[in-house]
Design a protein around this nucleic acid. Sequence first.
DNA 1: ATGACTTTGTGAAGGCTTGCACAAAGTCGA
DNA 2: TCGACTTTGTGCAAGCCTTCACAAAGTCAT
Lengths: 241, 241
Amino acid sequence: MSWLRGVRAEVVHESVRRTGGVPEATVGRLPLYLRALTPLHDQGITNIASEELAALAGVRSTQLRKDLSHLGSYGVRGVGYDVDLLAAQIAQELGLTQEWPVVIVGMGNLGRALASYGGFSGRGFRIVALADDDPAVVGTRVEGLTVSTLADLATAGPTVAIGVITTPAPAAQAVADQLVAMGVRSILNFAPGHLTVPDEVDVRGVDLATELQILAFHEQRRLLAVPTSGQVPSEDREVAG
Amino acid sequence: MSWLRGVRAEVVHESVRRTGGVPEATVGRLPLYLRALTPLHDQGITNIASEELAALAGVRSTQLRKDLSHLGSYGVRGVGYDVDLLAAQIAQELGLTQEWPVVIVGMGNLGRALASYGGFSGRGFRIVALADDDPAVVGTRVEGLTVSTLADLATAGPTVAIGVITTPAPAAQAVADQLVAMGVRSILNFAPGHLTVPDEVDVRGVDLATELQILAFHEQRRLLAVPTSGQVPSEDREVAG
DNA sequence: ATGACTTTGTGAAGGCTTGCACAAAGTCGA
DNA sequence: TCGACTTTGTGCAAGCCTTCACAAAGTCAT
């Protein structure tokens, strides 16, 4: 993401004096656009039309243009968008011109998987600490970092902006409370269940079961709609009758 | 989730002859309600008011009631909802009265973590196959299952309803194509990037970087809004000036 | 320079979602 | 039985989001 730094200066002026009101739905899609732009940059493509970029991101071109209009983006009519400039503008809007320090709490399988996942660095985030409360795990090294307890981190750890919770569900709320007490105001929670936090804290939850259940809903709908059926799973088919 | 089976029969009649139109936003919240109900059942609580359940799920009570009204749910005025009956109704709506067979493709750290994650079984899903294309991994056993290639699964594997993609990004589209060719119409994609699939196929994407970037946006907003700042990370603070 | 063509940016319409206000329907104590 | 109280279910209004339609603004060949 270092390639975004060069053009940042030009972007700041437009973007900083904006009204401040980017719709939440748009914010949710900006990362998709950024994700689509990166390989374009790598391929040396310097310009792209909204129609094409929208296809890469999986949205409609009119939505892409409306979204970009919210951040005062300037494409060129008849031509399209400058890939690098647009990426820099989006990165600026998302606050990715600085690197956010992240702590992962819970060194189970998922926590380790995330710790070794390359998707952090180079995308605006850096893992600066790992935590767990299992004495057998504390003190071990994972991906070049020594695992500590959250309590230790609170008293003598690096500053952290974002906390990622990968503990079992029963521990999640206590961990969230500790993170909040440490001053963390952004939490990404992989443990199933709702976290109660103060208003100023932002929590996003990612729950595998929830995602699968939404898929299952639509899957079932398809099966109920077309009683021609065919294959498909196990027991309990009387539901369709 | 076996405790849901008992009451299912009573539910079927109401639910099956419904109009069919449950709003997408509601579908996205039904899993949250189910998730909140399970511990209540375990604690032996048999009845709950919408206000309380909403708090557990992290939504407003009026939204909960509106959502439930879409699936023709019958609470009792002045009393609340029967925990087990409500859970059974939601499970029914989501298609969780049967167990959906799942394949995980990509036996890297994340794939292994998901394979060993307990959140599948007992929630309406069962991992029936694991796949990878690395010859060093194919043939090994993970969590009691032997890893095979997708090609082998296509010709001689168990029927699969849902595919979970945990491969690196460059492989994801090819894997999706193969899954679709196998008849899979529901895909959960953990690889960053947009998947192109036929209309009848349902894809949900979970991207760590995307989630973190949305958090970063709000985090930055807080910092820009309150220039009192204080702590917080590294370089590039001139953005705020 | 001109005209045909391409592509962006946006006002307005339509649809979906949320939240309010309140009637309906039940419980419970006296 | 009655009256006070609780809690659900829902019509309606407000707000947000998406999509359409099209003017604005540029390129490019001639």
